[in-house]
């Protein structure tokens, strides 16, 4: 019995929101959405552990699906501890512009980024298999002015070769942060790797490393470096089967 027993909570932790932006247009039917559902469902316990044992930040998860229009799956980001993945169904077209606009609205301290203890910049993970069917440019231009977006770790997975790589690159800001999944196995591995790595890097106090000259660390750079190592590994595993 003592004062430490009676503490109601731990150290003040910031929040790091992991955003999943998932294309649920009709073309995602079958093994594509199947792999997405399985992979995210499988990774939730690991995200929970990362959040649980992390004194720097807790992880919350937000999910936006887009097809003919877009919809937030939960009204607020949910703590990884309490998050359960609702399997997504598909149908409709690819209104990516609408998704960008809705993301921009929620990346605000009056909306999803309202935690009183403050937040780290979010990690935003976009998955799509096709061409945008709306005028995405306007939504993306607006998003690019959002400071949360500017500081975020951004990553995209192109599902199959029909995905519009240029749009995804435009979204992430560089080609290294766009991965291409050519089969369900690769897609699952990518979702696992990206979710875990982005969560770990995003939810930690930033690191300082000496490169010999001046130190200029960046979470996005660190992330890109890890993605490149991962991509080099997974490339060999890429089987012939394509979507």
């Amino acid at each position: 019995m003592g004062i430490y027993d009676e503490l109601c909570g731990g150290i003040a932790r910031r929040t790091m929101v992991l955003f999943f932006l998932v294309d649920t247009s009709g073309s995602m039917a079958g093994s594509k959405i199947g792999a997405v559902n399985e992979a995210i469902n499988d990774i939730v316990p690991e995200l929970r552990d990362i959040s649980d044992n992390n004194a720097d930040a807790q992880i919350k998860i937000a999910v936006l699906e887009f097809n003919s229009g877009a919809e937030w799956l939960y009204p607020n980001p949910i703590e990884a501890e309490n998050f359960e993945w609702d399997y997504l169904d598909v149908g409709g077209v690819t209104d990516l512009g609408t998704a960008f606009t809705m993301l921009d609205e929620k990346l605000s301290r009056n909306e999803f980024m309202s935690d009183v203890a403050g937040s780290f910049a979010p990690a935003i993970f976009l998955m799509s298999d096709g061409q945008p069917t709306d005028h995405y440019e306007k939504g993306l231009a607006k998003l690019k002015e959002n400071n949360w977006y500017k500081n975020a770790i951004k990553v995209a997975v192109a599902i199959g070769d029909d995905a519009d790589q240029d749009v995804l690159k435009d979204f992430t800001g560089n080609s290294e942060s766009v991965l291409t999944a050519r089969n369900p196995e690769a897609l699952k591995k990518m979702i696992t790797f990206v979710s875990v790595t982005a969560s770990k890097i995003g939810s930690q106090s930033s690191s300082v490393e000496f490169s010999g000259k001046s130190s200029a660390p960046s979470k996005q750079d660190d992330f890109v470096e890890q993605i490149q190592d991962f991509n080099a590994d997974i490339f060999d595993d890429d089987a012939e089967i394509e979507w």
Binding site: R14, R109, M113, S114, V116, A117, G118, S119, F120, A121, N147, W148, N151, S206, P217, S218, K219
Partner: peptide, 8 residues
């Protein structure tokens, strides 16, 4: 330090 977004 309770700023909304703790950037690097």
């Amino acid at each position: 330090t309770t700023c909304p977004c703790m950037t690097e």
